[in-house]
Simulated scan of single mutants.
Amino acid sequence: MIRVASLLGLLIEDDRNFLGQMLQLLPRTISNFDIHWDSSDEFDNAIERIMRYRYDIIVTDVYANAVHKGKTPGDNKANDIVAAIRKTRMCPIFVYSSGSCPDSIEKEQGPFLIYADKAHPKFAKTLSDELHNLIKTGIPGIARRLHDELDAVSGPSFLWSFLQDHWNKLQKAGFTSPDTLERLIRKRASVQLGRLDPQQTGAKEIDFVSASEYYLMPPVADGLRLGTILRESQTNNFFVVLTPHCHLTIQPGKSCPRADHVLLIPAIPFDVVARENPDLDPREGKGSKRNEKLRKAIQSPAQIGKAPQGRYWFLPGFLDIPSSYCDFTQTRSVPYETAGSDYESLATLDTPFAEALQSCFISFYGSVGLPSLRPDDFEYLIDPNQSNQPPR
């Protein structure tokens, strides 16, 4: 887990007497993080604070007024707090009250939203244990680290150097409008956060990626584009869109793109390809040979059996997407409308992986075979005394 020096927490409790007790119960250190706690005894004020400040974890009472039939006022307040946080940022929440969990909170409970009964005799231990669990997910520390890195990217390392040094030129060229500057800084920040290794000091690009970095899940935009991962509704088979994005863009005033058909490439499960090529199955063998088989199996294009070089492109497994091979010898062209109705869009290959897939596909079908030269005709290259010297 990425660690930072300190995190900022917010305690929301409308009972001022119990607020003081809660502040005594809240831990000040978890997993080497120092936690500083703000507090609020008004829910409306708390929502304003959440919108204004960056809190890394929130502990809140349900604000349980007298219970009426149906929803209680407290149920609504707790729901408002959760909704406000989710609209603002990813922030784990610990909710407590006396009695059973309100319906609105119970429906939303998960690994980052925990409820506890403060009337339970072991409430103090539950509070401590669950806060430890929420912090140990890594989300609060990562969120704080990214926020600090964004400040650095748009601050001393970029605004103070590049923009200050080139401001006059940017003004003359017409690049200093607020919209243009925002896009420039956004682009710089996204590239720097995505390509630099956070574990290294200085500007060092990452050497390895995880499977999760291959994909944008869910897709960041509607519609199809190069690299969209589709799951066929009837068969649950996976396909990848190979049609360039420029042909799939829907122009203003139009209801469909220029491409009336979409080119798909099937993603063949790893087990299927491995069974068809047992000699190169990385699950067979031991030691260095096994590692070498695995290396060849997961590179792109993969080296699989006696298949033509470049036939298979490895697609690493992530969540619902299984580890698979895009088989360039099997393509499918479907009507654009069918691609939207009969397939579910799960994710999109991120840059540069989508472009690499397209490049390998083009290379595979653009390869040209040449007749071989006879080695005997070139023995003079290794033995100058050979009689078959080339003409001078």
Rank of each mutant, 00 (worst) to 15 (best):
S97D: 06
Q164T: 05
V209A: 15
S323A: 12
F175M: 04
A119V: 02
M1I: 05
F208K: 10
E213G: 08
S40G: 02
E130Y: 07
P278F: 13
L315T: 14
L184V: 09
R86K: 13
A78K: 03
L346W: 07
Y215E: 01
R295W: 10
N45C: 08
R28K: 14
E130D: 14
G20C: 09
F123N: 04
L230A: 11
L127E: 05
W313S: 07
V82Y: 09
T243W: 02
L25I: 07
P102Q: 01
Y55H: 08
R275K: 15
S39N: 09
G340V: 11
P73W: 08
L159P: 05
K306F: 07
R49Q: 03
S323I: 01
V67N: 12
P27R: 06
E149K: 09
A83W: 15
C256G: 15
D350V: 03
F18R: 04
W313P: 08
D75V: 03
R145E: 11
Q358L: 10
S359N: 03
S255D: 15
F123V: 00
R225Q: 15
G155V: 01
I304T: 07
R186G: 09
F361S: 00
P269I: 00
H245Y: 01
P111H: 14
P257M: 13
G310I: 03
L346I: 08
K136L: 09
T201P: 00
T228N: 04
F361E: 02
Y55I: 03
A274R: 10
Q389N: 04
F364R: 05
A78P: 00
F239R: 15
D207I: 15
A307V: 09
Y214R: 01
E182R: 05
R392T: 11
R295F: 08
E48R: 06
P156H: 14
I12Y: 02
I206V: 12
V241K: 15
E337V: 12
W313Y: 14
F43P: 03
V334F: 10
H120N: 01
F175C: 01
C360P: 05
F361N: 06
P301L: 13
P140H: 04
E106N: 03
K118H: 03
Q330A: 15
F94R: 11
G174L: 05
S97C: 04
G9A: 04
A211K: 04
E130R: 06
S387M: 12
K118I: 00
W167N: 11
Q358A: 10
